[in-house]
Amino acid sequence: MAALLSVEEITLRFGGIVALDGVSFEVEAGHIAGLIGPNGAGKTTAFNVITRLYAPDQGRLEFDGRSLLETPAHRIAEHGIARTFQNVNLFTSMSVLENVLVGGHRLGRGTGEKEARAMLEYVGLGVRAGDLAASLPYGLQKRVEIARALAAKPRLLLLDEPAGGLNHEGVEELGDFILRLRDDHELTVLLVEHHMGLVMRISDHVNVLGSGRKIAGGTPADVRANPDVIEAYLGSEAGP
């Protein structure tokens, strides 16, 4: 099967820091693809490149066979890519429902409350629809972000550390939830997460970044056994 997303030789520098150094990876349609690596490896930066918030210095970026590098960030949702943020980025003055309504912005005037409420029911936040988004606990705010992203009816969903603020049980549930999401919405998921158990359990494929470089890619079992990966994580608290 052809790749839905392909990141090719992407390099991005911030002044002297090379945040991404010739990074390439592909995400196949229908897969859950893990993207892991120690803090500062460049995972969030990769998300920001894919969503066109950052323009890479070099490299190519293709979605569904077409280059995204001419696409402005606000057209990315239209192409079918939606995301959540590592440090929650909700519309703090709005209710949970309104946040989800903004998620459906690209679908135009016609899409309204009904779909948004249904989406909130789906993620288990139906009764919180009227609450101020910022008043929810962190873990639920992350879930509002997922609902907001889903409201755009994406084909590719980028999740940046969705397990933040969850306890052990919550992380387990999240894994099942992401699997269900993928199936119910015919999604492809690119998942950045530090909970290795979660990533290894639900991913079809895992790419590993270290200091801006891709150091490994393969099935969860391959990656876990890769000595380079083990070395990259050496000394950092979360091992694979």
Partner: peptide, 25 residues
């Protein structure tokens, strides 16, 4: 009260979340 007003407030609350939701700043 509608879509335009929400876009205004979205831009005020978080520019990057607004952009990623398909709103042109």
């Amino acid at each position: 009260r509608g879509r335009t007003g929400r876009a205004f407030r979205a831009v005020r609350d978080s520019e990057i979340a607004a952009v990623s939701s398909g709103i042109s700043l």
